[in-house]
């Protein structure tokens, strides 16, 4: 518990550094492309188009109904896909954040716990941009958005907490054993299909137990939250309070494990290179 507080304090104290470093992170990722940062949006756009083609038109499926209204598949996909990309990129980049940057940081006195946070932050900027694009598209194609959209910042915050906690665990483990990063990579690919990004989990309504288990998935909680904010007509944070509680409980547990691991090994990271 004490270690966890220490990590939170570090985040607060070095927030300026997190903000600045995340900008350099964005810069260094996209410097060598002519289109630069535009690729951060082009990439997911292409993916969405492919999934739309495969899952939206080629395959037969039931119409998607949220709160009694039918939602076009492409709108539904967009609302959930960008938060999935944010999650995927943050966790992948967060996991390798420490061992790839350690040589450059070198000093042990550097607040190491902000390394995953600034990497996640740089992804978050991209996410905000893609959300803006989503809004613009929804306005153009006349997708109505109602008051429940103000839940969106909450889900963003919840997402950041989840991603930071996971990155804290994974960045430590993958610094010690590099294979962990590889394992994570394939696990995440699996999560794309398990978290209801591409098909509505309600397809499983014949198997209520399986559906319940899948709903406990924290990634599903985020994606579903985004979709409820865009298309729903309830306060899903409260109406699904059991899942909200479970989500935060899980985040807390992961964060506590992560802070313990991180604090235990941070001084010795350099020995594992």
């Amino acid at each position: 518990m004490k270690l966890a507080l220490e990590i939170l304090k570090e985040q607060k104290k070095y927030f300026y550094l997190i903000r600045r470093l995340s900008l350099y992170e964005l810069k260094s990722n996209n410097k060598s492309n002519y289109l630069g940062m535009a690729w951060e949006l082009i990439n997911p756009a292409i993916q969405i188009l492919i999934y739309w083609l495969v899952f939206g038109t080629l395959m037969r499926r039931e119409p998607i109904i949220i709160s009694g209204n039918e939602v076009p598949f492409i709108n539904w996909l967009m609302a959930g896909f960008f938060v999935w990309t944010l999650f995927y990129q943050s966790v992948i980049q967060g996991s390798k954040s420490i061992y790839t940057r350690l040589r450059m940081l070198s000093k042990m006195s550097f607040p190491m716990s902000i390394i995953p946070s600034y990497v996640i932050f740089s992804q978050f900027y991209i996410h905000l941009m893609s959300m803006l694009v989503t809004f613009l598209i929804f306005i153009i194609i006349n997708q109505s958005i109602n008051i429940y959209i103000i839940q969106l910042p909450y889900y963003m915050f919840a997402g950041l907490c989840l991603m930071f906690s996971i990155s804290l665990v994974m960045s430590t483990l993958s610094t010690i054993v590099r294979d962990v990063h590889m394992l994570l990579n394939s696990t995440l690919k699996m999560f794309l299909y398990l978290s209801g990004v591409l098909w509505p989990i309600t397809l499983l309504s014949d198997y209520p137990f399986l559906m319940k288990v899948m709903k406990l998935n924290p990634v599903y909680y985020l994606i579903n939250g985004y979709r409820q904010s865009f298309f729903g007509n309830t306060w899903s944070i409260i109406s699904e309070w059991k899942y909200t509680l479970f989500f935060w409980g899980l985040v807390l547990v992961i964060f506590l494990i992560g802070s313990r691991l991180h604090m235990k090994f941070r001084r010795h990271f350099i020995d594992f290179l």
């Binding site: 470093l21 350099y24 810069k27 990722n29 410097k31 040589r103 450059m104 940081l105 070198s106």
Partner: peptide
């Protein structure tokens, strides 16, 4: 010395000083 290969010299100076 740890420099970021993708950034320019000027960016590296700023980055290093920030850290």
């Amino acid at each position: 010395s740890g420099l970021n290969n993708d950034l320019t010299g000027r960016d590296n100076i700023e980055l290093k000083l920030l850290m």
